[in-house]
């Protein structure tokens, strides 16, 4: 591929050898590849997203109680924006509109964990099989967590808050307006995620070039590795797109697939900054049980995939 040739030309030109060569090649190649994919997908999805403003998402979910409600919430979680800071206001809008609690929690869980940009970038990096596993298990974990939290009656820990009127009439945008909106959104999104992507690829490159394979296979491969991945992944916040290159190079060094998946999911789905924002509207019992339910689901998926793959 042209990106590969370009990266090779760069390391040849710099006269690099050994580990440094491998690291720089990885960095140049992955940056080009991921940026190109992002450019294409973010604009396309930004355009599609103009058909799903949050008010519409909410309207779809109103009155849906059964399994279809959970499934739709998970599906909408995928196409909604992926920073938890933009997911939370949508979540609150749903709570305020009286959408069943379990369904709103499913949305809150799935939205940061899975998004269309990751689904397009992942196959190129870790293959189609792992991408499908990631999506299916993310949706399953999100739906199960929402269902269980609802069954446990955790909705009593949502703080009382006022909910303002959002019944604004939205004019159907013209095609030109949709394109403009998609362009503006892509620009902002890229600016927001590029730092994570570049740092993530940089870390991936260092791992690729310098971390010895034995270190990964002997310390990170057992069941404790999955536990460690989740424990490290939960508090930190980064964009899912920044984690992908790190996991890519760790898997290349022999990290078990389940451990890699668990790390990606826990980084994306839960984070300390997200808990801080939620603490304004949820009691700590609910935040803790949300984190524990989701964390256990991720742990289970990681262990399961390590066992069967």
């Amino acid at each position: 591929m042209v990106f590969d040739q370009f990266a090779t030309a760069v390391v040849d030109f710099l006269g690099l050898e050994g580990a440094l060569r491998a690291a720089v090649h990885f960095w140049v190649y992955d940056t080009l590849k991921i940026t190109a994919m992002l450019l294409a997908v973010i604009f396309g999805v930004g355009y599609l997203r103009t058909y799903f403003p949050p008010e519409k998402i909410r309207a779809y979910l109103e009155g849906k109680r059964a399994i279809t409600g959970y499934a739709i919430a998970a599906g909408l979680g995928i196409v909604s924006p992926f920073c938890s800071c933009s997911t939370i206001p949508i979540f609150l809008g749903m709570v305020g509109a009286g959408i069943p609690f379990g369904i709103t929690m499913t949305f809150l869980a799935v939205s940061p964990m899975i998004n269309e940009a990751a689904l397009v970038v992942l196959p190129g990096v870790v293959g189609f099989r792992l991408t499908a596993l990631y999506a299916v298990s993310g949706v399953t974990i999100g739906m199960t967590s929402g269902y269980l939290l609802n069954k446990a009656g955790m909705d009593r820990y949502i703080k009382e808050f006022e909910f303002g009127d959002t019944d604004v009439d939205i004019d159907e945008p013209t095609r030109r307006e949709r394109a403009q909106q998609a362009y503006a959104e892509s620009k902002e999104l890229l600016r927001e995620i590029m730092p994570y992507v570049v740092v993530g690829i940089g870390l991936g490159a260092v791992i690729h070039g310098y971390v010895p394979q034995e270190l990964v296979t002997s310390y990170l491969s057992g069941p404790l590795g999955v536990l460690g991945a989740v424990a490290v992944g939960v508090p930190i916040y980064t964009n899912i797109l920044g984690v992908i290159p790190v996991v890519e190079s760790l898997i290349g060094k022999g990290l078990p697939i389940g451990t890699g998946l668990a790390f990606m999911m826990s980084v994306a789905a839960l984070s300390l900054p997200q808990f801080m924002i939620l603490s304004k509207v949820m009691r700590k019992e609910l935040i803790a049980s949300f984190a524990v339910t989701l964390g256990s689901g991720i742990l289970f998926i990681g262990l399961l995939f390590n066992a069967v793959i």
């Binding site: 403003p53 949050p54 008010e55 909410r58 800071c85 933009s86 939370i88 206001p89 949508i90 609150l92 809008g93 709570v95 305020g96 703080k159 808050f161 006022e162 909910f163 303002g164 009127d165 959002t166 924002i277 939620l278 304004k280 509207v281």
Partner: peptide
């Protein structure tokens, strides 16, 4: 203002 409860009170779903 970054208070999530206030965002809800104002009816803001998109930031």
């Amino acid at each position: 203002d970054g208070d999530a409860a206030k965002l809800a009170a104002k009816g803001i779903m998109s930031t």
